[in-house]
């Protein structure tokens, strides 16, 4: 076989495989959206799920997913950014920094189910938080923190070194430089990273099976007392999220329209992820302009 022919075949294979990947994504998205979107209406998005009858919705699950995401971000963002700043600005190159980097790497590689089990043992049982939004949020924090640390560290390292020097030479404290000079420049990248991470949190299920639970108490959206069991914002109530719901419906769903519900839920989940992706791109560009130029 001549070299030219080989080259042609190889090029063809590469292009064919790449096309296959694109087709896979298009096919999967198309399948979910076509099957799911027809099922999505206001009733589906707001109604309670049904166990045996048809016509159940995903209202509480959707609310739980969003609530859990917000709670997780509230906990993760300050901690993750703090640790990221330590890595970028305070850590001296040496054995300790190398080990912390290893910790971050290992932590982000732990299977989510193992982290979920840890949450079950420590948060649900030992700390007695029970199957709850709080347990779920804390477990998701464990997941999300390494990601936030990396994003923050990278964002700070990308700020030109001269910015820091200028601050130092003006006699600013390191902390003042970090918060007032470097952070505004690094923030767009951090926000983009956070939104992408939020997409991941939104889709996570394995860790939540054992922490946030598989059930939701009947929610009363007029009750905003955080200690009441039926209050949507009670952090100590169990909360089945949308992702967990998809899993549950697929593996033990009894209602006659289980397949449609799974498709509709998947469509909602995928749409949310798509929105997070677009938002991240858009926000990154917009914020960069806003933070670095006109005040």
């Amino acid at each position: 076989m001549s070299a030219k022919l080989k080259d042609r075949i190889a090029t063809f294979v590469i292009i064919a495989f790449s096309a296959l990947i694109i087709a896979l994504l298009v096919g999967m998205l198309g399948y979910i959206l076509v099957k799911g979107i027809s099922h999505i209406d206001w009733h589906f998005l707001t109604a309670e799920p049904e166990t045996i009858k048809a016509g159940g919705g995903i209202g509480p699950e959707l609310f739980n997913s969003v609530y859990l995401l917000i709670l997780t971000l509230i906990i993760t963002i300050p901690l993750g950014i703090g640790a990221g700043i330590y890595m970028a600005e305070y850590a001296k190159e040496g054995r300790i920094t190398v080990s912390i980097r290893l910790v971050v790497e290992v932590l982000s590689s732990f299977p989510s189910i193992v982290v979920g089990l840890f949450g079950l043992l420590v948060l649900v049982n030992t700390f007695n938080f029970g199957f709850s939004v709080l347990s779920g949020a804390l477990v998701l924090t464990i997941f999300n923190m390494p990601l936030m640390v990396r994003v923050t560290e990278q964002a700070f390292r990308n700020v030109p070194r001269e910015q820091k020097e200028a601050g130092l030479a003006m006699g600013l404290s390191r902390w003042k430089i970090i918060t007032s000079i470097l952070l505004p420049v690094a923030l767009p990248a951090i926000i983009t990273g956070t939104i992408l991470a939020a997409g991941r949190i939104f889709g996570e299920a394995a860790a939540l099976l054992f922490t946030a639970g598989l059930t939701t108490p009947k929610l009363d959206f007029t009750d905003w007392n955080p200690t009441s069991l039926h209050s949507p914002i009670n952090p100590l109530r169990p909360a089945e999220t949308l992702s967990v719901h998809i899993w549950k419906v697929n593996s033990e769903g009894l209602s006659p329209d289980a397949a449609e519900i799974a498709a509709g839920s998947s469509a909602v989940l995928v749409l949310m992820v798509l929105i997070f992706n677009l938002l991240a791109r858009w926000a990154g560009r917009l914020l960069y302009r806003k933070f670095t130029s006109i005040k």
């Binding site: 901690l79 700043i85 330590y86 420590v122 902390w175 918060t179």
Partner: peptide, 26 residues
């Protein structure tokens, strides 16, 4: 500025220490 320096150091060190506590306990 000294107070700020301490706040920054303690806060960020706490965050990193938390990571280590988490991995050790897992």
């Amino acid at each position: 500025h000294r107070a700020e320096e301490w706040i920054g150091r303690i806060y960020t060190t706490f965050c990193v220490a938390l990571l280590i506590v988490i991995i050790v306990s897992i």
